[in-house]
């Protein structure tokens, strides 16, 4: 464990808390993409299936449970909560996710760390899908133009988590001789790059104060 990875995980938890605060606490799903939420649920349920046979640490185990639980809770409320369903922008949340999921599944089978293991295929699929899962959310925000404060903080926290993980990988690459993980490097770079435009507009909007809303062109 290093400081970048720890702060990355904390930033990831913060993004879940912000989203749960809005959806469950505030009973609103306005501006939130159910498609992105569902893809994250798929990402965590597939990647952390090794809960059943691997144990890296208590920290690792509990956070896996937390991420699966939080992502499923978000999907549940967006799908079945009456006020969440009423505020969800279903018409605008229209990114064609089959074009993300299918190629990720093919890539997961073809390019993974160990061809003999089905779990490695599933694991690689989850890494690829996570890299692009934010796209429907960014697409929805772009359509709406103006982003609510809580939503912008949520997307920022999610982007910060991945940027901190890039620093974590660099740190581990320099300090651990056996550390390779080429798949995660490339996917992580792609994922973080997708946030760059949002980061720019977030910074431009928030430099006058955290309560200024983000406007996207």
């Amino acid at each position: 464990m290093n400081i970048f990875r720890f702060l990355g995980d904390m930033s990831h938890i913060l993004s879940f808390l912000l989203l749960l605060h809005k959806i469950v606490g505030g009973k609103s799903a306005a501006g939130i993409s159910l498609r992105t939420a569902e893809m994250y649920a798929i990402v965590f349920c597939t990647r952390y299936i090794d809960l059943l046979w691997n144990f890296a640490s208590l920290y690792n185990y509990l956070l896996k449970l937390l991420f699966i639980g939080a992502s499923l809770t978000i999907v549940y409320f967006m799908r079945y909560g009456p006020s969440q369903k009423a505020t969800y922008n279903a018409d605008e949340d229209a990114f064609p996710v089959q074009y993300l999921i299918a190629p990720c599944a093919v890539l997961g089978v073809l390019i993974n760390q160990d061809h003999s293991s089905p779990f490695e295929m599933v694991w690689a699929f989850s890494i690829y899908l996570e890299a692009v899962a934010i796209l429907p959310q960014l697409f929805l925000l772009q359509k709406q133009g103006e982003v609510e404060n809580l939503t912008s903080h949520y997307v920022f926290a999610l982007g910060a988590y991945r940027a901190l993980y890039l620093l974590n990988w660099m740190f581990r690459f320099m300090t651990e001789p056996d550390y390779q993980q080429r798949i995660v490097w490339l996917s992580g770079l792609v994922q973080t790059a997708l946030y760059c435009d949002f980061f720019y507009h977030y910074y431009q909007s928030k430099k006058g104060g955290l309560n200024k809303s983000v406007k996207l062109p």
């Binding site: 990831h12 691997n54 890296a56 896996k64 694991w123 056996d178």
Partner: peptide, 10 residues
């Protein structure tokens, strides 16, 4: 994986 390590990251 082929590097023999359990995936220890989230």
């Amino acid at each position: 994986g082929s590097d023999g390590a359990v995936h220890d990251e989230l």
